[in-house]
Design a protein around this nucleic acid. Structure first.
Length: 210
DNA sequence: AAACTTTCCAACCGCCTTGGA
DNA sequence: CTCCAAGGCGGTTGGAAAGTT
């Protein structure tokens, strides 16, 4: 998952690769006391052998106290699909509409889950279409019972609209914009994640502050 | 149980934009 | 206006973990 730390002698003063717990704590501690921003000088002042960019990324994508970790809920999933249909790969813009989620997370989610599913769906669609001449109007819209009547313990594949709801667009598979339905569902959020949380760090920080 | 394959995501890279000198 | 540094963003990669044979 994480990359191998770069220990090249040429770049010995700039660390790369996965962040250690110690580095995380240094960064959290520094930002807690001094605030974020001016990342290059922050990295130096904090004594981290990281680039400012690396610090910024680590903070924004992982260490910020308001970063929401764990499974993307069905509401979030639907919102991502809706906003992606509207804006395309504007991940940062999409992320602004999902509090606590980062552009990186949404981008990863899209690529690994949604896009993959769409490709599969498109393949199935192709097979289906070759056996059936007619595409019905119903097939060109999202089946709401399929999308909204979902139980969150079911695999995500269950939740996706019929395969005809997607079109190929700009070398990507994108949801057909006009077929998207607003997420009016009251689906239960699934927050039964097992990720370790930075909340522990933050609790510690608050305790240590005077 | 070992070998191989696939999935997932943290982190990097490079390009673009912004703002100050 | 130009230059430069820093920030922001989207695309891509590396490799651990999970799944399959």
């Amino acid at each position: 998952m994480a990359r191998k730390p770069c220990d090249s002698s040429q770049e010995a003063d700039v660390r790369k690769g996965p962040w250690t717990l110690e580095e995380d704590l240094i960064l959290i501690n520094y930002i807690t006391n001094h605030g974020e921003g001016v990342w290059n000088s922050l990295a130096k002042a904090a004594g981290l052998k990281r680039t400012g960019k690396s610090c910024r990324l680590r903070w924004l994508n992982y260490l910020r106290p308001d970063v929401r970790r764990g499974n993307i809920t069905t509401e979030e999933q639907l919102l991502i699909m809706e906003l992606h249909a509207k804006w395309g790969n504007r991940w940062a813009k999409i992320a602004k509409n999902l509090p606590g989620r980062t552009d990186n997370e949404i981008k990863n989610y899209w690529r690994t889950r949604i896009q993959k599913h769409m490709k599969q769906a498109n393949q199935n669609n192709f097979q289906q279409q070759s056996s059936s001449e007619e595409i019905t109007d119903q097939a060109a819209t999202i089946n709401t019972s399929q999308v909204f009547g979902m139980a969150h313990h079911e695999p995500m594949e269950t939740y996706f609209p019929p395969i005809n709801s997607y079109m190929v667009h700009h070398n990507n598979l994108e949801p057909f914009p006009n077929t998207y339905l607003p997420p009016t569902t009251t689906c239960q959020s699934s927050f039964d994640n097992v990720y370790w949380s930075m909340e522990d760090f933050w609790s510690m920080q608050l305790l240590n502050r005077d």
